[in-house]
């Protein structure tokens, strides 16, 4: 196989014709259309979700270490550069949340009494669950 010239290798369809020409795609193909850009921004939200894990673990570690370490963490997280990073991260995470809920009806086929549930109620259920969990977490943290 390795000795066969490229032009004589079987094509992907299993035929014996030459490999079809593939037009090279430029690296920045996603700057060409707004929809492509939103797609890539949504994909990049994963990086900021990973950053959140790092931030959370730094905080948990500081809290575990003692009140001095916690105060140090608060000084560090109060710097404008860290706050700015977290503002950008929150915008990306919100983009993730909105697009995730928007896609939910297409990702899951919920059936109730034999009928497929329409997209509207599925999306609404997600937003309701989000609101409830947000309120519960805020209550738990702020009640102290």
């Amino acid at each position: 196989m390795s000795r066969t010239p490229a032009s004589r290798r079987p094509g992907p369809a299993g035929g014996s014709g030459p490999t079809p020409y593939r037009k090279p795609v430029p690296i920045f193909w996603w700057l060409r259309r707004r929809a492509y850009l939103v797609f890539v921004l949504r994909e990049l939200s994963g990086v900021f979700i990973a950053w959140f894990v790092v931030f959370l673990l730094l905080m948990a570690g500081a809290i575990a270490e003692g009140s001095d370490a916690y105060e140090q963490f608060r000084d560090w997280s109060g710097q404008w550069s860290v706050v700015l990073l977290n503002v950008i991260a929150l915008l990306f995470v919100l983009l993730h949340t909105l697009t995730w809920f928007g896609l939910a009806p297409r990702a899951m086929a919920v059936r109730l009494r034999g009928r497929r549930v329409r997209p509207g109620p599925i999306v609404a259920t997600h937003y309701l669950l989000w609101a409830l969990l947000t309120a519960a977490v805020a209550w738990l943290i702020l009640k102290g």
Binding site: F52, M59, V83, V93, H126, L129, T134, V137, A138
Partner: peptide
Amino acid sequence: AALLVPVLLFLFGIAFPL
């Protein structure tokens, strides 16, 4: 992430520091 990260990041990353 969609359900829990926004509230935690908002509180600890923005609201408390500011």
